[in-house]
């Protein structure tokens, strides 16, 4: 039984570090489309985190809205403007 709790905690920490990592990636990417994909990955991991913390309703909502609709709208926005970020 001890092994499973270890696995569970390991998964939990991997997801947490994944969220922070993908959030940093969002900022690092110059190409906006890949930044949006990183954002989708981040919200997918947040949804997984909600699931791990036993909140399935919020996980479904976050997955559908965060990864699905926000990415779609951002990509629509990128389509009508320039694809790269310059400063």
């Amino acid at each position: 039984m001890e092994f499973f709790t270890f696995l569970y905690d390991a998964l939990h920490f991997m997801v947490l570090f994944g969220i922070v990592g993908s959030a940093l990636l969002v900022v690092k990417f110059k190409d906006l489309v890949s930044a949006t994909i990183a954002l989708a990955a981040c919200s997918l991991l947040v949804s997984l985190e909600f699931f791990i913390l036993q909140a399935p309703d919020v996980a479904i909502a976050e997955a559908a809205v965060g990864a699905g609709l926000t990415t779609a709208i951002l990509i629509f926005a990128i389509k009508s403007t320039r694809g790269r970020e310059e400063y």
Binding site: P56, D57, A59, I60, A61, A64, V65, G68, L69, A72
Partner: peptide, 28 residues
């Protein structure tokens, strides 16, 4: 997800968001 909202995890908003994502897929 919508119809079984009061039994299993999910509900009106979650199911609607899923179908909203589906419309985005269809449009793309």
């Amino acid at each position: 997800i919508i119809l079984h909202g009061h039994l299993t995890p999910g509900g009106g908003f979650q199911g609607g968001a899923i179908i909203g994502t589906l419309m985005a897929l269809y449009l793309v």
